[in-house]
Structure formats: C-alpha cells, structure tokens
Design a protein around this nucleic acid. Structure first.
Length: 487
RNA sequence: GGCGGCAUAGCCAAGUGGUAAGGCAAGGGUCUGCAAAACCCUCAUCCCCCGGUUCGAAUCCGGGUGCCGCCUCCA
C-alpha cells in the first residue's frame, strides 16, 4: 500500500499537481472516455488508452482497490452516418466495432476494465438524469429535443476556463435551431426516421453526445468519484458538459481529478480522423511489436505531445530487443538454480524505490524507463563483467533483480512474454516483412559453422558478409551461433 | 480574437529552487580468430531570447520570439 498522500496527479481542473486523496480510503474509482465505435481506433487513441491503462495498473500496484470503467459510445451521429454509408444497420455496425476494439485492446495488452458500459444499455439512467435536469430547471424541451441551458448553470466552463461571452462571439455551431442560446447543448435528440430511438417523455429519441458519460460514470462509480481520464481534446466541450450535466443533476461534485493525455502527432499535426492523418492501430501492429509500441508511448510523459515517426518506433523495438535479450540470458543462468542463501551484491530494492518515486509523481513513466535502463545494465554487468567473484552471490542477485523486473513489468505491461518466444516472434516478423529466405540463411550458417570448425576463417568471414548482404547478422556465442535481422 | 500547453545536446527525452536522468547516434576501450551482442569511458559550464526575484533558477515572476492544441467531430 502506498504511503498515504504519496501519489501526486496533475488535475486539469486546478491546473496543478495535487496529492491524490481517495474519496474512500484505499479505494479509487476511475472513468475513462472510451471509443465511439464507428471505425477502427488509430494509434493516437491507442496512446491515450495505454496511458490510462498504466495509470490503473500503477494504482493497483500501489495497493488501491480500483474500479475501472471505460465506456463504449454506441449511439451517435457518426455511427448513424457511417451506417448509412455502408448500408449496415447502425447497431450492427456499432457492435462490430466494439468487437474490433476489443481485439485491438487485447493486442495492446490493455487491461479489461471492471465495467465497459454501452450507451444502449444505459438508456434508463440517461432518461432519469435528463428528467432530473429538466426538473431542476437547467434543461428545456423543444420539439422533442431536450437541451441543457448553459446560462442557467453558473459553474459552466470551470474546467476549460473559458469566457462565455468570448465563446458566444465565436460560436460557429448553427445546428439545433430549437436552442435558446448557441452554447446550449443537446441532452436528448428527437429521432429522425430510420435512426435508432427509444421512448421518452419527449417522444422517440436518442441521447445527445455528452450525457451518456455522466450516466455511465455515476451508475458504476457513484455521483462523485475520484478520477476521470480522456484526451486533451475532450476538455471542451465534452468534459465541460459532463460536469455541467452531472453537477446540475446530482447537485454535487462530479469528479475530483481530471486527467488529460497529450496528442500523438504525425508530421507535426495532431493525429485525428478529421484530418485524415491516421494510422490504424492494427496496421501499426503489423509493423511493430505491441510491447514496443507500449514502450514508445511510455517513453514520453502522458501529458506531452508525442511525435510518431518510423525511427522512434524502430528505436523502441530495438530497445525492447535489448531488454528481452537480457532477460533471456538472465533466465538461462538463474532458472531452476539454487544459489543458496546469503548476501546480495547491492540492494535490488533500490530499483523499486526509485521506480515508485518516479511514477508517484504524476505517473512519470518516461522517467521510470530511465531507471529501468539502469536495472538492465546492472544485470548485464553482473553476467558479463561481474564486479564480484562470488558466483552464488551473483546468481542470487540476478534472481532478485529479475524479480524486480517482474514486479515492474506488471505495471508497464511490458515483458509479459517469455523472452525467447518474444525474440523469435520478432525475428519471424522481420524475416517475413523483408522477404528473407530463412532456409538459405540456415544453410549458410551451417556452412559457416563447418568452416569455423576447420578454422577456415577466410571462408567463414566470407559467408558472414554474404549473410550481411541479405540483412542477417550472425553472432557467435559460447553456446553456438545465433542470428538476427539487421535493423 | 479568447483559453491552454510546449521550447533541455546531432536526434528522442526526464528533471518545477541547490547546481543537467535515460535512450539513439558518434568516438575510444574490454571481450572476440575477426565480428556481433554485452560492459566501461568520452560526449550540454549549460537548459529559446531579454529583464527581474533569490545566497542560489533550466526550474519562480515580467516581457518577447517560435511551435502546438482547444474554441466544430476528435483520445
């Protein structure tokens, strides 16, 4: 269990880091805005979901009992439009992309949330909240639509800190002619023919965009909860509206801490579906290992922009190769071995302490990866250039450090594979991607082995050059020759 | 125009008052038949610019420049 008050989180509401104070001791509720399921998620979405995934993992690691909710918005204009375009019923299209999202999430090693509510399964709660808002005098009905009346809610824009007059001056939205004021937003929309709809006190209709999160969050986490996450672009209007609806409806603070993740940039601009500069997660995962992608995401603080380039991706994967290669060697030397009891070289727990100190400070995983580097370098040093002669001590220390890696890997969602399997899978993918003839590689390696046994180094080196020309690096070790695809 | 964020070595990137983590690249070394891998060493007197506060600032304040985002769907 974390020392009370040891974790600090940047809160968008107050624009500063705050000590995390759970509403209920030892427990935390977190709501993360999930996907609107009208197409495949892109890697910018994936970055955001990965950020909050590691946040939840860390809070649990720190001993909190976390209730993690991430929704699916499965009724929405974009879904209806996509369904029309593709000639597929809206609910079928939405259900299909829920399944696709789940597959992507599994591929990225994302935790399965405790609750993954869908809008279509939350209609009674949504209707109840809308009715409450009408009853409280902050919402009004107009020709089957129901709108939230921003002017009736003094706290509006407290998250985004906008000035209502300035916003009205630049208000471009002209939809919803029934609105009394441009900033008013729809809680409930009258159904048009052919659209998904539900019965309501205002006739057939469907929820507006923002109301579902208020309803789903309160349904599973209560009317006040601890943490709410999403991308920076959701601050306004989505989260602003969530707050207005919830607080005007329930008459209490909606959420204590608002966390927002930075964007993934491609060619200097935010990756977004509307700009069209998107890389689908599943396409990226044919090029890069999922854990390497996670590592790439974690290498920059979650609130900072992260530039997506082929080079940074390749760097991330080579780094993962280094980590896994190290783990493979450590495992080979320590598994099923008893080094007896006795002192260790150095203090392995120091790595844990440093890691926690880093991540406690607003989930600074980027800083924590620096600590991880030191930990891996130490294991390599112990194996290759041990600073002590005591072999059992080295073995015990390696085992202890390996255990630390295991602990940390649960938080990062990295090193979840068996090292040998990971390395082989990566190599297979590279071989396939580059069209390398693996049988030919094996044959050449056999020839080279024979040449080396005869001490015919000229022939051996010649074969190595031939392999290099094919993009293959051969590596001689005391256990024999291995090979890898050149980066 | 309003609001918010960012600017750290060739590149990526931590660090929010006490004198610059880590990674990549580069150079040197150990190991190796030679390599690769691994390890060691070197690599920012300085953190966009100009002022200010302070014993002390990359870190705080003021001004400027540049970039990005939100204000319309968006993680």
């Amino acid at each position: 269990m974390a020392t009370p008050g040891s974790i600090r989180v940047y809160n968008t509401m107050t624009n500063q880091k705050e000590v995390l104070q759970p509403l209920r001791p030892g427990k935390l509720g977190i709501y993360v805005c999930g996907p609107t399921v009208y197409s495949y998620v892109h890697i910018g979405n994936a970055r955001s979901f990965t950020s909050f995934d590691t946040v939840v993992r860390y809070l649990r690691y720190r001993g909190f009992e976390v209730t993690y909710v991430r929704n699916y918005t499965d009724v929405d204009d974009k879904i209806i439009n996509a369904a029309k375009e593709q000639g597929e019923p809206a609910q079928e299209l939405a259900a299909r992309f829920v399944r696709e999202f789940e597959a992507d999430a599994r591929a990225m090693h994302l935790l399965v949330p405790d609750h993954s509510p869908k809008v279509t399964e939350t209609i009674p709660e949504i209707l109840a909240l809308v009715q409450k808002l009408v009853a409280n005098g902050v919402a009004y009905e107009a020709q089957g639509d129901v709108y939230f009346e921003v002017g009736k809610w003094p706290g509006y824009a407290k998250l985004s800190k906008r000035n209502l007059e300035d916003m009205q001056a630049s208000e471009r939205a002209t939809t919803g002619e029934q609105k009394r004021a441009p900033l008013d937003f729809a809680l409930w929309k009258a159904a048009k023919p052919g659209e998904p709809s539900w019965d309501s006190p205002w006739g057939k209709g469907r929820p507006g965009w923002h109301i579902e999160c208020s309803a789903m969050a309160s349904k599973f986490l209560g009317e006040t909860f601890d943490l709410h996450g999403g991308g920076l672009d959701l601050i306004f209007p989505h989260h602003e509206n969530e707050i207005a609806q919830s607080e005007a409806g329930f008459k209490k603070t909606f959420c204590n801490v608002w966390m927002h993740g930075g964007f993934l940039d491609l060619d200097g601009a935010k990756m977004s579906k509307s700009l069209g500069n998107v890389v689908r997660l599943r396409d990226a995962l044919t090029q890069i290992d999922a854990e390497a992608l996670r590592y790439f995401f974690l290498s920059t603080h979650y609130r900072s922009p992260l530039a997506f380039t082929d080079k940074s991706l390749a760097d991330a994967e080579s780094r993962m190769e280094y980590f896994y290669e190290t783990l493979r060697k450590v495992d080979a030397r320590t598994s099923n071995q008893d080094f007896g009891a006795g002192p260790l070289h150095g203090d392995p727990s120091k790595w844990v302490t440093d890691f926690e100190a880093c991540v406690d400070d607003d989930f600074n995983f980027a800083g924590a990866l620096g600590i991880l580097s030191g930990l891996f370098a130490t294991m390599n040093e112990l194996m290759d250039k041990p600073p002590v002669k005591d072999k059992p001590m080295i073995g015990r220390t390696l085992k202890a450090l390996r255990a630390v890696v295991g602990k940390i890997s649960l938080v990062l969602g990295l090193f979840e594979d068996e090292p040998g399997a990971w390395l082989l899978r990566r190599r297979d993918r590279q071989v396939k991607a580059r069209g390398i003839d693996q049988a030919k590689v094996e044959a050449l390696l056999n020839d080279r082995r024979a040449a080396r046994e005869k001490k015919d180094f000229a022939a051996s080196d010649q074969i190595r050059d031939a392999l290099k020309a094919m993009g293959i690096e051969s590596m001689d070790t005391p256990q024999g020759t291995t090979w890898k695809v050149l980066g």
